[in-house]
């Protein structure tokens, strides 16, 4: 697998098919935790980290556990119905593990973005990344899958940080009352999505 192809995967998921602005995953934290830039960056780091780890672990579980066991019973896909249950359990326990690990060994990092960790379990971007890796044949390869998961996290961080920057600026603007809060945020997200459409075709 060439280096160029990996860069292509990275740019594809971070810019062209940005998880948030084109894939509509992780909208809840995107709307909820984007009031301040430093919070957005913290959340973005936590998501990138958990997404990469869960992407790799779920890939390993599907390819090194479910498939061989199923194959032993004659049909490699026999156990695939357990996938979703396993994915969500892996993500939930990953979040717990990461939280415990950070609190013990990197207290400063924990105080920086530890508060976001429990929120991540229900962040659909993480489960979404695991599902996309599982659905698309080009991620049969672990390296590709890792780059995809990492790129997805970076794309999320980028989107949420840009959004937080805009929201800090409009805090004192005179927004019509009915659009204050989620309304104006969604409208701005729409324009941001429009801008990100400009990345289509990049790296070709």
């Amino acid at each position: 697998m060439s280096f160029g192809a990996l860069i292509g995967i990275f740019l594809g998921v971070a810019l062209v098919n940005n998880m948030v602005l084109a894939g509509f995953m992780g909208i809840c934290p995107f709307l909820g935790v984007s009031r301040k830039v430093d919070m957005a960056v913290g959340m973005g780091c936590a998501v990138t980290f958990v997404m990469t780890v869960s992407g790799v672990v779920t890939w390993l579980l599907v390819h090194a556990v479910l498939t061989p066991i199923g194959a032993a019973f004659g049909n490699p896909e026999a156990l695939y119905f357990l996938k979703y249950v396993i994915f969500i359990m892996v993500i939930a326990s990953m979040v717990q593990l990461v939280e415990m690990y950070l609190r013990k060994f990197f207290p400063s990092l924990y105080t920086a973005f530890g508060v976001f960790l429990p929120l991540i379990t229900t962040n659909c971007a993480i489960l979404g990344a695991c599902l996309l890796i599982d659905m698309k044949p080009e991620y049969q390869n672990l390296l590709n899958a890792t780059v995809f998961a990492f790129g997805g996290g970076i794309g999320f961080m980028m989107a949420i940080t840009i959004m937080a920057g805009i929201r800090e600026h409009i805090r004192f603007s005179d927004v019509p009352r009915c659009l204050q809060g989620p309304g104006i945020t969604l409208l701005m997200a729409g324009m941001l999505a429009l801008a990100f459409m400009g990345f289509t075709g990049i790296g070709k």
Binding site: F24, C178, P182, G183, L187, A189, G190, M191, L194
Partner: peptide, 20 residues
């Protein structure tokens, strides 16, 4: 994708206006 954000933003705005 942008249409989704814009439509939802406007619809939520309308709903809020009605509630007020």
């Amino acid at each position: 994708p942008p249409g989704a954000f814009l439509t939802l933003g406007v619809v939520i705005g309308i709903v809020n206006q009605l509630r007020y």
